[in-house]
């Protein structure tokens, strides 16, 4: 039975690669895209953290200078 499924009346040699190759290509494209996306998202989160930290320090400095000017 398995041989019949693989053989597909002599057309298995054409039918199976026509499904396996495209699905493999689709899977590779998915993996590559996923890898790039997760890498970029991690970098993006890091940059946002750094930027928000810088912004926080900048606001802190501004407050200190305002306090100094009042005194």
């Amino acid at each position: 039975m398995i041989i019949d499924i693989l053989n597909l009346n002599g057309h298995g040699v054409f039918v199976w690669p026509s499904f396996i190759f495209p699905l493999l290509v689709c899977y590779i494209l998915f993996l590559r895209t996923k890898k790039t996306l997760s890498k970029l998202e991690k970098e993006n989160i890091k940059e946002i953290k750094i930027l928000s930290q810088q912004k926080f320090e900048h606001i802190k400095k501004q407050k200190i200078s305002l306090l100094n000017s009042k005194t």
Binding site: F30, T36, L40, N44
Partner: peptide, 19 residues
């Protein structure tokens, strides 16, 4: 499947533009 890849690629491109 195309929609899935499209959305992932769209996110990649958006992050690149932001960066």
């Amino acid at each position: 499947y195309s929609a899935l890849i499209f959305l992932m690629k769209y996110r990649i491109e958006t992050i690149r533009v932001k960066k």
